[in-house]
Amino acid sequence: MTSLIESTAGTADAADVADRPAAAKATWDAFRRNPLGILAMVLLALLIVVALVAPLLASYPRGHGTAILRPPSAAHWFGTDNLGRDVFAEVVYGTRSSMLVAAGATALAIVIGVTVAVCSAYFRWVDGVMGVLVDLFLSLPVLPLMILVAALVGPSLQTIVLVLAFFSWPEVSRVVRSQALAVVRLPYVDAARLATGSPLWIIRKHLLPAVAPVIAVSVVLTASRAVLSAAGLAFLGLGDPNSWSWGRILFEAQQSGAMQEAWWTTLFPSLAILALVVAATLLSIAYNDARDPRTRKD
């Protein structure tokens, strides 16, 4: 820490870099001792792999088939739907679009949310305005508004991504801001202010790395919430009719009136949603526990 007292940006950087691998290793050591965390990570990785290699697992479900509403069998692992399409293929390609929606919506929400958060924390005058805006957004009834916007604009992948991002960033912003506020008051940030006149540099070099763990947790949680919301919208018929998603499989099962006869049309997409949301939640809890010295017991 001597280098920090010397108050040169370069040495502060060096200390940061030197500390980071040690902290990361401690976090990883703690994380890997948590079987639930590992399980969640494997599950998420599996879903990502399924999304990436979907064409190798099944051919794209389109048109119609002759075997209508058949239960799971060797030919159709997850059975067939009311138009004779393979539910397994629908779930596989649904993974792809669910992941895409999650990634798109999360990326946008994180970029907006983090930008607003660090600016609010660093520039006090911004905080007043953005604080009110974030409070306003957080008090809105999100689901009805999402339904309204999606219904008015019309369903498409872009609409869904934009709608989800639009309603997700305030939460990211609130969480990251509270962490960032604590950081900007620390002496080393004051020291950095003396070293440079560029707030951007301080935000990039000091503030963002300090809040990175919170951002990581936000990414995972926002993604899982985005998948849930997207499934909800698709179930209401407001998903993209041109791409398969887990919510669309559920919506079509409901529309066909076959929900109680053909349990397989709803069980497998529901399990996929459950797997993703549980895995994301467990992963973020495990990561949070692992990086916190108080809970990792090292």
Binding site: R62, G63, H64, L83, A151, G154, P155, G237, L238, P241, N242
Partner: peptide
């Protein structure tokens, strides 16, 4: 969706837009 898929076989793009 069947109309869309059938039209694609004739090289025509149809974009279904399901609306509330």
């Amino acid at each position: 969706t069947l109309v869309r898929d059938d039209a694609a076989k004739a090289g025509i793009t149809i974009k279904p837009q399901g609306l509330e």
